[in-house]
Amino acid sequence: MIDPLTLNFVTETMKGFGTVEPAGKNRFRITTTPDRLRDAIMHVQAMLGCDRLITVSAVDNSRTLELHYHFTGQHRTVITIATGLSRDKPVLATLSDLLLPAGLYERQIHDLFGISFTGHPSLKKLVLNEDFPENEYPLRKDWKPAPGRSYGGTKERREPL
């Protein structure tokens, strides 16, 4: 059993990657830029012993599309690496080669938020049905279903049994 990480230690270790702040009990968040994201993740893996990716969360805050990579390890502290992408052209290099489970999360985020992950081996639809319109991303804040447009499912009403 290893002791939980402290704010000082995390701040010291992650110097140069962005601001470190507490995000709840035994949780720290490091806010970084998209181009430093990969290095920051490799750094928390190597220097902070974060060997497990809990999940990748995506949030649309109406200005940017935020990505939060939540990690933990033997020390049981949750380290979140957050970054923001422009809403007009959200593109990020894939991390699925570095973090295997991120492959599926990236596909889900691509479906729901329209973030393109360049270099992803197969960025096909994962959670939205195949006839869901292209270029519509339902979890973006400004998305509304267009009246009259089909979002999948059976077209004609069938008589009940």
Partner: peptide
């Protein structure tokens, strides 16, 4: 397995965002 809810609130009586990661999604890989 571990279920994760990432919740953000905005001062109202509704959530700004809730991101649910179910254990099955984590286990597919």
């Amino acid at each position: 397995g571990e279920l994760v809810h990432f919740i953000r609130t905005n001062g109202t009586d509704k959530v700004e965002r809730i991101d649910i990661r179910t254990p099955t999604l984590a286990n597919w890989t």
